[in-house]
Design a binder for these strands. Structure first.
Lengths: 230, 230
DNA sequence: ATTATTGTGTTGCTACTGCAACAGGCTTTG
DNA sequence: CAAAGCCTGTTGCAGTAGCAACACAATAAT
């Protein structure tokens, strides 16, 4: 699925290689035997329940994460954008932990780093290896934080609490009280709730002056924040 | 809080050092300037919102994870057992991401590994460093898998679906159809639901022959499994 | 022995929220 | 222009689950 491509990417621009020069990034790729592969729209980049030797990084294009349970039911997850890593868990823990597939949404290119080589190349690569490992840990930690926040969100069952917490989390990330929000449908998906129930609750909170909102933004009233603290 | 202790622990027995000899583990500790500290019952090992330079590993005793939001409300989380790691996210990402405190439940000892030194010691330590990093990534990945499963669990809102999925997850982990379950109160906490509602649902499912259960175990009927697949 | 304390199972009530159906607005397509 | 599609906001209905109160064990503390 896809033939190797010539070195047309400025790897040093990707977060995984942040702190490296273009030269060092090339050295990393060479010494770890990493390869660039391209995929046509619709092709599978990773298959659930199959063993996977690579940590992948999106170079260009977009890909869809697809969770497959053991009965073959698929449910779609995130979209992977440029720079995103994938396949980490299955590369590290093996096929028993490969629950997700990844499929290209466009023409896509990815850098595939053999996990085994990554572990073994510490000596050969020295400082370069250290920087990449640091970036890997950082990216991994960020993902862990996002997951923890999602768990916290889902732990609140009342729709009002969930929305309030969501807005607090987002205003932290966006560094602004006025939060830019996606469409109501997407918002409902993020909150794992019913769309019309969400709209209903937004209306109620607006009427109660707990919330001010426009077409693509929302802002909590300070009195609502106080209530959220309990 | 707590004075350094002499080297009385067989570090090679802990998962983070699995694959190392006792000698190599000691070398790792020395070269990374890791220290062993002990804490009296109730003392804080880590404070939320304070900067933390160390990745910690529980050597003995048990500690409580405490989540603190920005208003000072505390909510208790996991208990850390022997071998567990803590402080990873805050050591890697900095104090902005230090959402949790850790408090000793008993007299406790922990190994504190300076994250900075861990990153810098790759050259000095060679193979030993590689093995520890590998173990760190493995442990991190396992935690990620647990979080993903929890998210999947919480994404099901009906109590019946949640319980069913919980039992499927546990039977995978316990490698048995008959799942050992904690007390109803703890189970309710794991499912983030109301205790009496949980008991009610268990009764209903038992009556409907979807579930067989005893005092400390449960087992799904195969017909319930089929339904869970949709 | 008597008194807490803790986990359990039950039940009635209430309210929240999922669901489905519909109407209005906006854009795209023919 | 008409038709189709998509997102939105509203509403009625029904069912689930949270909550509180209670009774009953089994254990622990006095």
């Amino acid at each position: 699925m896809g033939k190797p491509k010539e070195n047309a990417f400025d790897l040093a621009e990707y977060p995984l290689f942040s702190g490296l020069s273009a030269e060092e990034a090339r050295e990393f790729v060479a010494k770890t035997k990493s390869v660039i592969r391209s995929y046509e729209k619709g092709n599978r980049i990773l298959r659930a329940y199959e063993s996977n030797a690579f940590i992948g990084m999106m170079l260009e294009g977009r890909a869809q994460i697809i969770a497959e349970d053991r009965f073959g039911n698929e449910s779609i997850g995130h979209t992977l954008e440029r720079g995103a890593l994938f396949g980490i868990v299955s590369a590290i823990l093996g096929p028993d932990y490969a629950f997700t597939s990844v499929a290209a949404k466009n023409k896509t290119a990815a850098l595939l780093i053999p996990y085994r080589e990554l572990l073994l190349s510490g000596m050969k690569l020295g400082r370069v290896h250290g920087i990449v490992m640091k970036n890997l840990l950082t990216s991994f930690s960020l993902k862990a934080v996002l997951m923890m926040q999602k768990i916290e969100l889902l732990s609140h069952k009342s729709l009002r609490d969930r929305l309030t917490l969501y807005l607090i989390q987002q205003s932290d990330r966006q560094k602004s009280d006025r939060v830019t929000v996606p469409s109501k449908m997407q918002l409902a998906k993020a909150l794992e709730c019913n769309r019309s129930a969400l709209v209903r609750e937004i209306s109620a909170m607006s009427r109660a002056r707990l919330l001010r909102c426009g077409d693509d933004w929302m802002e909590l009233d300070t009195s609502a924040l106080a209530k959220a603290s309990k």
